[in-house]
């Protein structure tokens, strides 16, 4: 049990000081809970006891407020360890309550949209962008999913100046992969599954594509004509480098459009990673962008996510489609 791990863990220390709590809280452990899961959930319970007005009582005594706390602790644990998701109001609540609890390498589960029976062909579609902890998307994911996993500490509010040079070789490889893929698919055209093409190419280069979705109505500062209520916007990044943005009626349509935009960049003679200025939440920021050689007539669309940001800057972070 985690309590024996020694005094360096603040929770065990706390329990050693309050032995009456230790016995009580351990009576709440589930039979099938692993030590790791339990120590995390125990921390969740202890941290939120007061906030929920739960009196520490004798083992076996149960009150509605305790049950409600237990339930929320299970929601949190199910989310972190099993990969379950709950209605937004519940998720918001546990995100808040679970803030600050560190879980060492939580298992990764995909809520791969289980395609209807026997249509295995589409399975591969959605699992690529839910793979976690790859590339530079860690922090972004952790935030949006309420996971409080360890975050990289070296966060700056701008991409490091050497980043373009670091990423350039990868995108050169990707450029080739895309070129071959498009040749084999009969060339760039409207009938391709653009996302699939891009995804498979990125994966064949051993990286993952990150999609960020934002409902259109959540984007402020759009021209009045565009301010439709429905629809989603999708932004694609790979290795934190921005690749494209697209709009669609639903998330997959948005994603397809973003992929198409991204693939357009690959139609030139080469692709280059550059640091450019663009808008993000009403501010000008420096972002890593993937560009072709053509001179751009317009500016860039505003960024939907910004992976190089200080923590305190963010408010609500964009919803990722699948967590």
């Amino acid at each position: 049990m985690a309590a024996q791990r020694g005094g360096d863990d603040p929770v065990s220390e706390y329990l050693q000081q309050n032995p009456h709590l230790a016995g009580w809280v351990d009576s709440l452990r589930g039979f099938c809970e692993t030590s790791k899961q339990w120590s995390a959930r125990r921390e969740f319970i202890l941290r939120n006891m007061e906030g929920q007005g739960v009196p520490a009582a004798q083992p076996g005594a149960h009150s509605p407020s305790l049950d409600s706390l237990l339930s929320l602790s299970m929601v949190w644990a199910n989310h972190v360890f099993l990969g379950c998701s709950y209605p937004p109001s519940v998720m918001d609540k546990i995100k808040e309550m679970g803030e600050g609890i560190a879980v060492q390498d939580a298992p990764t589960h995909k809520t791969t949209k289980a395609k209807g029976k026997r249509s295995a062909g589409t399975e591969g579609e959605s699992d690529s962008y839910v793979k976690r902890n790859k590339g530079g998307t860690n922090d972004l994911e952790a935030r949006s999913s309420g996971r409080t996993a360890v975050r990289p500490s070296s966060q700056k509010s701008a991409p490091p100046p050497q980043a373009p040079a670091e990423h350039q070789p990868f995108f050169n490889r990707l450029y080739k992969a895309v070129a071959w893929k498009l040749v084999s698919a009969g060339g760039f055209g409207p009938n391709l599954d653009h996302f699939e093409v891009l995804r498979s190419c990125v994966e064949s280069c051993k990286q993952t594509l990150t999609c960020v979705f934002v409902p259109l109505k959540d984007i402020t500062g759009l021209p009045a004509v565009r301010a439709q209520k429905e629809g989603h916007v999708c932004e694609l990044r790979c290795l934190t480098v921005y690749m494209g943005t697209g709009y669609g009626r639903d998330e997959s349509a948005a994603r397809a459009m973003a992929s198409k935009e991204a693939l357009k960049v690959f139609q030139g003679r080469k692709v280059t990673v550059k640091i450019c200025r663009r808008r993000f939440r009403g501010r000008d920021v420096d972002d890593l962008m993937l560009l072709d050689e053509q001179p751009r007539s317009q500016g860039f669309p505003p960024a939907l996510s910004y992976p190089f940001q200080e923590e305190q800057l963010e408010g609500g972070s964009p919803q990722r489609s699948t967590v």
Binding site: M74, V90, T111, A114
Partner: peptide, 20 residues
Amino acid sequence: SIIDFYPDDFAIDLNGKKYA
């Protein structure tokens, strides 16, 4: 107090199988 029984989405582990 039993909201944890009702996730609205959950993971399916293929566990070496082909179909969900």
